[in-house]
């Protein structure tokens, strides 16, 4: 991303200076919006993000120690899919992304409707729901892994009070991933909610009055006004939380470390495990797979969602 200014500065400029005052002075200094402004950001972006992303495609096909690499073709990728544990990670990533983004849409929309209504506690509730967004994921993960402990955990103690014996949420292969997903929703639903609130507040009052004139009730207001007109909000909640879900690592890592066994591993946690084990090529192959999964799912999804976004 280099500046094209020197090459575009046209030579005859100084001569025409006599013709008019303003333009030559302006052109003499180059464009008022010089491309040099891209330079600092561009250098950092290129060196720290773009180059590694491109190099990843090469290194994912090598056995690699950071200092030297031997080309092994697609071996890392076949390893990745041949191993049962790694395949689970692939599947889990999709389950995790779909379930978290689905729940965030449903709960975020419900909370959005609730918190744009005329509740007295609206302000308090909005703050309470939003605050977890700003708390560190590690802190949330540690706290909930304590709350979800099988015998001493608060959740199971509360369930015992009503006569239900709760499972070992994080220790059971069947519930581990979904428990983490629910905590993810707990932490992230506040963001979905404020996006919905912003969307719903911008719906003109007239539409609701029109429904009232036609004798419609609360359900009609929701079904025929709120739901269709908050589509842009739904759109961004889906995209944001779906991308976040596919890339998610920190919460899963602090709560289960991918366990028990490999049952709650996702691609991002496998990347870390392989990195820790020194398999840099394999780890990078995981990165490339994640890259392909994210692009292959998010780009068509964005197209699909924005195609449905018909301005009302």
């Amino acid at each position: 991303m280099t500046s094209s200014r020197p090459s575009t500065a046209t030579p005859p400029e100084p001569r025409t200076a006599a013709a008019g005052r303003r333009t030559p002075r302006r052109k003499g200094r180059g464009n008022p919006y010089p491309y040099v402004f891209y330079l600092p950001a561009g250098i950092i972006y290129t060196v720290v993000f773009l180059v590694p992303t491109i190099m990843a495609f090469y290194f994912s096909m090598t056995r690699w120690t950071l200092f030297d690499s031997t080309f092994v073709g697609l071996e890392n990728f076949t390893d990745f899919f041949a191993e049962q544990n790694l395949r689970i990670g692939f599947q889990n990533t999709l389950i995790y992304a779909v379930s978290t983004s689905g729940l965030k849409v449903v709960l975020g929309m419900a909370l959005g409707v609730l918190l744009t209504s005329r509740l007295k506690l609206r302000g308090f509730l909005r703050s309470v729901v939003f605050f977890p967004v700003l708390v560190s994921t590690v802190a949330v993960g540690i706290t909930f892994s304590v709350l979800l402990k099988p015998d001493t955990g608060l959740v199971n103690k509360a369930l015992a009070l009503v006569g239900v014996s709760g499972p070992d949420w994080l220790g059971d292969a069947n519930t581990a991933l979904l428990s983490v997903a629910i905590v993810d929703v707990w932490k992230g639903v506040g963001l979905a909610t404020v996006i919905y609130i912003a969307g719903m507040m911008s719906i003109p009052r007239d539409y609701y009055q029109a429904v009232a004139v036609d004798g419609g009730g609360a359900w009609h207001r929701f079904r025929y006004v709120t739901l269709p007109l908050s589509w842009p909000a739904t759109n961004s909640v889906i995209i944001l939380s779906f991308i976040g879900g596919l890339r998610s690592f920190d919460l899963i890592w602090t709560m289960t470390r991918g366990g028990p066994g490999f049952t709650s591993d996702v691609i991002a946690s496998i990347i870390y495990k392989q990195y820790q084990a020194g398999f840099f090529g394999l780890s990078t192959a995981g990165n490339v797979i994640l890259f392909i999964v994210v692009t292959a799912l998010v780009v068509p999804l964005t197209r699909f969602l924005s195609a449905r976004e018909v301005p009302a």
């Binding site: 972006y45 720290v48 590694p52 992303t53 990843a56 870390y272 990195y275 990078t284 990165n287 692009t295």
Partner: peptide
């Protein structure tokens, strides 16, 4: 540049190659 900005929003960073560059 717009394309690169969107790319940066969507694509997960490649970890070990970034370490390689920083190294």
């Amino acid at each position: 540049v717009n394309f690169l900005v969107l790319t940066g929003l969507i694509i997960p960073p490649a970890i070990v190659p970034t370490i390689w560059v920083l190294q």
